[in-house]
Measured scan of single mutants.
Amino acid sequence: MSIQHFRVALIPFFAAFCLPVFAHPETLVKVKDAEDQLGARVGYIELDLNSGKILESFRPEERFPMMSTFKVLLCGAVLSRVDAGQEQLGRRIHYSQNDLVEYSPVTEKHLTDGMTVRELCSAAITMSDNTAANLLLTTIGGPKELTAFLHNMGDHVTRLDRWEPELNEAIPNDERDTTMPAAMATTLRKLLTGELLTLASRQQLIDWMEADKVAGPLLRSALPAGWFIADKSGAGERGSRGIIAALGPDGKPSRIVVIYTTGSQATMDERNRQIAEIGASLIKHW
């Protein structure tokens, strides 16, 4: 067993022997301040990774656009098919120029040779490549099948209805392509620590998230040296922004954090800054 596999296998073990965790309302004060600064709703939840206990939450059962955070769930569904012998990570998928959609920095470079399922998941999570996500959605049967996968996990809230990039439209009061912070946090925890996926697939999923290259201005910008984070960000229309993450000190994750916002007129930089400040408060009061 590799060191990384050992780390993920012992996530519940280490967490069980940690000192009790206590909620700190100071972080919620910052979440509410972010709402004021952005002029928009902000949803927040913080779960203990081992027990699933909610440590703090704000608007945990209000719907927010998922945006690209759905790509972690998508690759979880792909990995479940791999575990069941219905898919192979090494299978190569070929596609054409007509398949390319807006923001496809990886797939646009491989029109000639195609990409493997493993490479597509890596591109979808680490670079948020939209064509990679659409190609992977095709392998599982489309958005409705991802929703069905989530329902089978016990998540009857999260739903995907459309493809990239239309799913980022974020129309107010439109339930399409949305989740709730509580539902997303619980589902992410199941994917990373539950028995739904094999140990190898859980490790692969967290490795992809740990290698995320496009979430630097968010929670990662607030992390002290030595902290662990595996995350996936999302951005959408109407001032929408979000991030889902597993993080913790001492090089291992111990909490799940989900943050979503929508309806702001603020710039992307300002949305990023507010999420980073929430992260800084979380870490300060850990």
Rank of each mutant, 00 (worst) to 15 (best):
107 T>R: 01
181 P>L: 03
22 F>V: 06
238 R>D: 07
191 L>Y: 07
280 A>E: 15
45 I>H: 05
135 L>I: 14
219 L>N: 03
131 T>D: 01
28 L>V: 11
62 E>G: 07
95 Y>I: 11
165 P>S: 07
61 E>V: 11
64 F>D: 00
153 M>A: 14
129 D>V: 00
267 T>Q: 13
76 G>F: 05
180 M>T: 14
203 Q>Y: 09
55 L>C: 08
7 R>G: 11
2 S>Y: 12
115 M>I: 07
178 T>D: 02
225 A>F: 10
174 D>K: 03
154 G>T: 05
136 L>V: 08
159 R>A: 06
61 E>T: 13
90 G>N: 13
264 S>N: 07
210 E>C: 12
211 A>F: 09
242 G>R: 00
138 T>E: 15
259 I>H: 00
114 G>A: 05
225 A>E: 14
255 R>T: 05
187 T>D: 11
73 L>G: 06
89 L>F: 08
195 E>T: 12
72 V>E: 01
4 Q>I: 12
270 E>L: 10
230 A>F: 02
119 E>A: 10
89 L>G: 06
102 E>D: 15
111 L>M: 13
285 H>I: 04
242 G>E: 01
104 S>T: 06
281 S>R: 12
201 S>F: 04
264 S>G: 10
256 I>N: 01
177 D>G: 03
127 M>A: 08
268 M>A: 09
14 F>G: 07
107 T>E: 01
99 D>E: 14
60 P>T: 12
106 V>S: 08
65 P>A: 06
282 L>F: 08
25 P>M: 10
272 N>L: 02
284 K>H: 09
178 T>F: 02
217 P>Y: 07
224 P>F: 03
217 P>H: 10
82 V>I: 10
183 A>T: 12
98 N>G: 10
201 S>R: 06
230 A>P: 00
186 T>G: 14
271 R>T: 11
21 V>Y: 05
74 L>A: 06
93 I>Q: 05
181 P>K: 00
197 L>P: 03
110 H>P: 03
150 L>C: 11
98 N>F: 15
241 R>F: 02
230 A>C: 14
34 A>S: 14
123 A>K: 02
254 S>K: 14
115 M>C: 07
105 P>N: 05
23 A>N: 06
137 L>A: 06
45 I>M: 12
265 Q>N: 10
257 V>S: 03
189 R>E: 09
149 F>E: 07
154 G>M: 06
78 V>E: 03
51 S>N: 10
235 A>S: 08
224 P>D: 06
253 P>V: 09
158 T>P: 00
200 A>C: 10
231 D>F: 03
186 T>K: 13
189 R>S: 13
54 I>D: 06
30 K>H: 08
224 P>H: 06
277 E>V: 12
239 G>P: 01
130 N>K: 00
115 M>E: 03
22 F>H: 15
124 A>D: 01
145 E>P: 09
105 P>C: 04
226 G>N: 12
